[in-house]
């Protein structure tokens, strides 16, 4: 399955599930819940972390954390 760290910048996707419990909890309570639309807005100059658009705001996370988020392209 496609994970968030592999989602190309600007493409829309939908959050499906998480593969890491700790990351899952942090992201869930920040509104990054399955079914929400998500997109990568930009990548930090050194290639990591990334900034994603979720639930109407901008959230930064490391690629390792994004790899725990499974998404489906829309």
């Amino acid at each position: 399955m496609l994970t968030l760290d592999k989602l190309p910048v600007g493409e829309q996707a939908v959050v499906m599930s998480f593969t890491n419990d700790a990351v899952k909890l942090i992201l869930l309570e920040m509104g990054c819940i399955p079914g929400e639309t998500i997109s990568v807005e930009r990548i930090a100059p050194l290639g990591d972390p990334i900034a994603v658009n979720i639930s109407g705001y901008l959230l930064s996370m490391r690629k390792a954390e994004a790899a725990a988020v499974e998404v489906r392209r829309v």
Partner: peptide, 11 residues
């Protein structure tokens, strides 16, 4: 303690 960098980038 695992390190995270999950952080809001405010407007």
């Amino acid at each position: 303690e695992k390190s995270y960098f999950i952080m809001e980038l405010p407007l």
